[in-house]
Design a protein around this nucleic acid. Structure first.
Length: 806
RNA sequence: GCCGGUGUGUUGGAAUUGGUAGACGAGACGGACUCAAAAUCCGUUGUCAGCGAUGGCGUGUGGGUUCGAGUCCCACCACCGGCACCA
């Protein structure tokens, strides 16, 4: 019989589902293993090969772990709130809930066609009120602990989505989603105090098994820096606090700079003699987007304040104060001390405005550029009591000094900003807050959850920048939970990232009406043992969900400090020729087409074989054919088996080696070499003949990759007395069988490869050298020479060093 | 500019972590089967020189360490990803 995937794949998918073969069991005695992949956003385009790579990888892991006897939780769900669905709904006048429902049905069908071993009874959907009830509940807990607050501040505003974006969602000055320019806009927003967790989000990375590039990227994003805050005094008596990482250069300060947004400016209005000039500069700065301010305009601009100066606390000298947009209000204190000798930006500014440049660290030429080195090569000069110290000595000395003198203290700063949590859109979780003129913002009572998203006529974003829900006066007008008077509901909704910040917890107990999940379920399954997902989520989803989880830990809801014990990441799948897959390039591969042409098992095997899992890989139709050929060869081999249940002696060592290789490679994400090893084994089995015993092991090793085909063969060959292939124990190897009786040893002469010789395994050095010397090529090289040294690498290599005789 | 990563045949990629470079695929070429094609099966396939056995060269470039370097060290080049006026 010929291998015909279309005839067998549906049959096994149905069987796995009907018999709930992959159900995870809460509280089971077996050791648990929680394998997680990022749940998809159910877009209208359906599943693409980019999903198939991580999903197949973790499916392989999950299937292997089950065969190893573990109680595996491998769930799937849908992260369905968000803009694309809403935009589609607007365009086609279909309710987003309906769009979501249809897209989910399509995704589910596609996922099932690939034969993934998800526990389909645990599917979740972030737009389900029974789910987002708990997203809202978590928000209320954050609010109660003071971690959610409303603030009016300049925010990132996407001009096309007409919506606020988080810093993490702005890429190169444009909206991460739609590519439209992002401008600054003053808006009152719900914010989450992720900055309060900044230090812990860095520290706790140390205990986690995350790949290094994820750790470093998170650390860089959080951006910790150690420095000091130092108080200067203005001539009008106000205190000007600056943040600096180079307090050693305090004697080199020749001016101060304030951000145009600094509140002192308004306060000083009457004392600033050139106020109109300052005001004009402020207005100009406000007009620029952040992008223009940072990217395009590295040329320094600014205005000197007339009438107020600052006093350097170290020297007592007066220095001028400037306003310049190279100082950011959002970092440090919004005021910077200008040290042009040792900071390139300050040097540029000082040069432009003709300010003095004082050298306080020797080693460079401050007339040409700033000297910024922080190592031991620089020695302090022109710096009072610091003179003669290296920079490394001067920094702690100065920190100590400012603290004792009472005008400063050590300070740690982070680049991480608080998380802007409001979106002016319809398709998201309503924020369960009410505004009362008398009582201010009030949380709705928990027994009112879920606060349902109201039906509206139009999902269009409004031109005034308010959510479409704001037009639903019936819903908006409510009573104050505090005083019972008239009040209005918050009409902004939560961002896309809300529902995904805790979804892995819900899988543990997906139907629980009384809690996120039961304590027993949380205790049993926490933490996620292995989480694989895209690098693009490192500073978004991954950071946000760690933050929420730490908060839930603090309030006693979850049992672990961290949600994910292990995090790995896959590379992108590119189109044929190495270009990014996109509709406009017309090089998108649809998994359905691949399944129709070659079968799901070929799709799965190829996507694992395509290359290094962590690196980007280009699709190749020809290489897909190669994987199908491999599966055909496995299938056809079943027609020529010898009857023996034992391993064929000629294959025995190869089989044990393959078991070891495949087992280890799956754990190490080296799926490509695991499959290569299976291919090599099949080549051997064709060469040496294949017994039923040989074949059985081959099938088990192949089963995580090509499960449908393996089950079919398993059944037709009558191996199924003890159940399906996926229910068998994972094959074990015997270390004793890994070694061959004879090994091939490479012979080098002076480090150059000359020959190979066959010797019994573990031969002693003299025997190997003797065998090597017997080789004609080696013998020729040895003519007229003395053997002065030999180096033996057991069972591998021998290197012979000769010297001319005499 | 800063941080991280990568660089190996025609091609996707291997290499037990310092020990036979190019496993396993793809492609190409040759052969078998076939009236023919497809499929399948069997070979060959880094490069240069040579009819040949064989020899030289070869993992981005240049140095170094070592008996031995794709792997370690130094300097550089190219590409990819992240961050970027963060004081």
């Amino acid at each position: 019989m010929k291998y015909d995937p279309s005839a067998i794949e549906g049959k096994w998918q149905k069987k796995w589902q009907d018999e709930k073969v992959f159900a995870a069991v809460n509280g089971d005695d077996r050791r648990k293993f929680y394998a997680l992949v990022e749940f998809p956003y159910p877009s209208g385009q359906g599943l693409h090969v980019g999903h198939a790579r991580p999903y197949t990888a973790m499916d392989v892991v999950a299937r292997k772990k089950r065969m190893e006897g573990l109680n595996v939780l491998f769930p799937m769900g849908y992260d369905a709130f968000g803009l694309p669905t809403e935009n589609y709904a607007i365009k086609n006048h279909i309710h987003p809930a309906k769009v979501t429902h249809d897209n989910i049905a399509n995704f589910t069908r596609q996922l099932q066609m690939l034969g993934y071993s998800f526990d389909w009874d645990r599917v979740i959907n972030t737009t389900d009120p029974a789910y987002y009830k708990w997203t809202q509940w978590i928000f209320l807990q954050l609010y109660k602990k003071g971690l959610a607050y409303k603030a009016t501040m300049p925010v990132n505003w996407c001009t096309s989505c007409k919506c606020v974006l988080a810093n993490e969602e702005v890429v190169d000055g444009v909206c991460e989603r739609c590519g439209a320019p992002v401008i600054r806009k003053e808006k009152s927003q719900w914010m989450l105090r992720i900055t309060q967790y900044a230090q812990r989000l860095i520290d706790d990375l140390d205990e986690l098994d995350y790949i290094d590039r994820v750790k470093t990227q998170q650390k860089n994003w959080i951006g910790r820096s150690e420095g000091a805050e130092i108080d200067f005094t203005a001539t009008n008596g106000d205190v000007l606090t600056v943040y600096t990482t180079r307090c050693d250069t305090l004697f080199g300060v020749t001016y101060m700079v304030m951000s145009p947004e600094h509140t002192y400016l308004k306060k000083w209005k009457d004392q600033i003699q050139n106020w109109s000039e300052v005001e004009a500069y402020q207005a100009e700065a406000a007009r620029k987007s952040d992008f223009e301010r940072s990217e395009l305009n590295k040329d320094k601009t600014g205005v000197r304040l007339q009438g107020i100066e600052a006093v350097n606390p170290a020297t007592g000298k007066q220095v001028p104060i400037f306003v310049s947009d190279y100082v950011l209000m959002g970092y440090g204190t919004g005021i910077v001390m200008g040290v042009p000798g040792h900071d390139q930006r300050d040097w540029d500014f000082a040069t432009k405005f003709g300010l003095p440049i004082v050298e306080v660290v020797k080693g460079g030429d401050v007339t040409r550029e700033a000297f910024v080195l922080k190592d031991d090569t620089g020695v302090m000069v022109n710096s009072g009591f610091l003179n003669g110290m290296t920079v490394k000595e001067a920094i702690p000395a100065m920190k100590k000094h400012v603290e004792e003198a009472g005008y400063g203290h050590p300070k740690v700063n982070f680049k991480l900003r608080d998380w802007v949590f409001s979106r002016q859109r319809y398709w998201g979780e309503p924020i369960p807050m009410v505004y009362c003129e008398k009582c201010g913002w009030q949380p709705i009572s928990e027994d009112q959850l879920p606060l349902l998203l109201p039906e509206v006529e139009s999902y269009e974003p409004t031109d005034d920048g308010e959510s479409p829900i704001s037009k639903m006066t019936d819903w908006v007008n409510t009573t104050c939970p505090c005083c019972g008077g008239p009040a209005k509901r918050e009409t902004d909704t939560m961002p896309q990232w809300a529902g995904s910040s805790w979804y892995f917890l819900r899988y543990m107990d997906p139907q629980n009406p009384d809690a996120i999940a039961s304590k027993e379920a949380l205790d049993y399954w926490s933490p996620v043992d292995w989480y694989n997902g895209g690098m693009e989520h490192t500073t978004l989803h991954l950071l946000y969900s760690r933050f929420w989880h730490k908060f839930l830990y603090d309030i006693g809801v979850v049992p672990t400090k961290e949600p994910y014990a292990k995090r790995t990441s896959h590379g992108m799948i590119l189109g044929e020729g190495g270009e990014k897959m996109s509709k406009s390039r017309g090089n998108v591969i649809n998994p359905n087409d691949v399944i129709a042409q070659y079968g799901a098992d070929t799709m799965r095997t190829y996507i694992m074989f395509i290359g290094d899992f962590e690196k980007a890989a280009a699709w190749s139709d020809n290489a897909v054919k190669g994987c199908r050929r491999f599966l055909d060869r496995v299938w056809n081999l079943s027609a020529q088996l010898t009857d023996s249940p034992a391993y064929t002696p000629a294959n025995e060592s190869a089989i044990h080696k393959t078991i070891k290789k495949v087992s280890e490679d799956i754990e190490a994400l080296k799926f490509n070499t695991a499959i290569a090893a299976l291919m090599a084994l099949v080549n051997d089995l064709y060469q040496n003949g294949c017994s039923k015993g040989d074949y059985k092991t081959l099938l088990l090793l192949l089963s995580p990759f090509a499960p449908h085909m393996v089950e079919e063969l398993w059944e037709t060959l009558g191996f199924n007395a003890s159940g399906m292939a996926c229910q068998q124990s994972w094959p074990a190897y015997d270390p004793a069988k890994l070694v061959d009786s004879v090994v091939t040893v490479a012979v080098q002469v002076g480090g150059k490869m000359k020959a190979t010789v066959q010797v019994p395994t573990d031969s002693p050095e003299d025997a190997v050298v003797a065998a090597a010397m017997a080789d004609p090529k080696v013998a020729k090289a040895a003519e007229g020479m003395d053997l002065v040294k030999t180096i033996l690498v057991k069972n591998k290599l021998v290197n012979l060093i000769f010297k001319p005789k005499g």
